[in-house]
């Protein structure tokens, strides 16, 4: 009855491969991969919410918060340890999400989407007007250290890349198990029928709340990694188009499997980079068209393609 699930093993392999490949990747590709991994963290959280039937149009709030945490910690507080900052930013995001979550867990569908969007726009509005933090331009973040060691500028991107791989691996590993757990299925149950969930003695609000907080923490970690590799943060990270991009990526990959978010994020970065190179004036158009095509032809995302192939392969 139980199908064997090789995901955990495959994830370990992928992790080791990514680390090894990191040694020979050209700079731009390592950068692109790090960004993709960072964004995938946000998307994984978003996918978790989407599996519960909720689309947040405001994950940029926590993405930005995570980024600014790195910046402020390094620039103003002198804290530069990469791992430590990740924990701090996840913690801060978790606290804020717990506060907002109390309210948000009562909302569904469009109202959830719009309210999350509103909160991220509030942060954007505040940052844009805060000259101490560089207003619209943002500011450069201090170079991170690792357990007291200061990597040289040449090493820094490899360090952040490896850290991103590690964090992404851990996220994927535990989120995969999470999807299969009681709490994971509770999300789908909430999406499918809240009344039944109530009558099974569980509070749908609580389920949503927990997921929202977790998603926020993941988004913050993603934002922190982005800030570390880009060396810069600006309010754009909280702007609604950034959040929209995350939703786009989630849709592109699909919600069927935790790895889908990573594939989606990587493809998105590739499409964007290529589109931006080939057609600097029409890259958004290319993205928009891709989005529409995915919605129309692959409503369950690219993952459905992979899955269909796998099933077909087994039958032969």
């Amino acid at each position: 009855m139980l199908k064997t699930d090789n995901t955990s093993r495959n994830l370990c392999i992928a992790f080791v491969l990514l680390l090894l490949v990191g040694l020979i990747l050209p700079n731009w590709l390592a950068f692109l991969t790090t960004i993709a991994l960072a964004k995938a963290m946000v998307v994984v959280g978003l996918v978790m919410l989407m599996r519960a039937g909720l689309v947040s149009f405001g994950q940029g709030l926590y993405y930005c918060l995570g980024g600014y945490t790195v910046g402020i910690a390094g620039q103003h507080l002198g804290i530069t340890d990469a791992v430590g900052i990740l924990f701090v930013s996840a913690f801060i995001a978790g606290c804020l999400a717990a506060l907002l979550g109390l309210l948000l867990c009562r909302y569904r569908e469009i109202f959830f989407a719009m309210l999350t969007l509103a909160f991220s726009m509030i942060l954007y509005g505040v940052l844009v007007k805060t000259s101490e933090l560089g207003s619209t331009d943002g500011f450069n973040v201090a170079k991170v250290t690792l357990l007291g060691w200061q990597p040289s500028p040449g090493q820094l991107s490899l360090v952040v890349y490896s850290l991103a791989c590690l964090v992404a691996f851990l996220t994927a590993f535990f989120m995969h198990r999470y999807y299969q757990s009681g709490m994971g299925f509770a999300g789908e149950a909430v999406r499918e029928n809240e009344i039944r969930v109530e009558y099974l003695g569980v509070s749908p609000q609580r389920v949503v709340f927990i997921k929202y907080v977790l998603a926020a923490m993941l988004a913050a970690v993603g934002g922190s990694i982005t800030a570390m590799i880009a060396g810069h943060v600006d309010p754009e990270m909280a702007y609604w188009t950034t959040s929209g991009e995350f939703v786009f990526v989630a849709l592109l990959g699909g919600t069927g499997h935790v790895v889908a978010a990573f594939i989606g994020a990587f493809l998105f970065e590739v499409i964007r980079t290529i589109a931006f190179d080939l057609a600097p004036y029409t890259w958004q158009m290319i993205l928009g068209t891709t989005l529409l095509l995915v919605i129309f032809f692959l409503p369950k995302g690219l993952w459905s393609l992979l899955k269909a192939k796998k099933v077909g392969g087994n039958n032969v």
Binding site: V55, F57, E109, I110, A113, G244, V247, F248, L251, Y281, T282, W283, Q284, M285, L287, G288, T289, L291, L292, I295, F296, P299
Partner: peptide
């Protein structure tokens, strides 16, 4: 026309795609 009947949230995304396209059309 070909998207009617989909979920409200999916329709938001459809129009988000339109937004991306229109922004570039306007620039063109």
């Amino acid at each position: 026309r070909v998207m009617y009947g989909r979920d409200e949230v999916v329709m938001i995304l459809v129009t988000y795609g339109v937004l991306l396209i229109l922004e570039d059309v306007i620039k063109l």
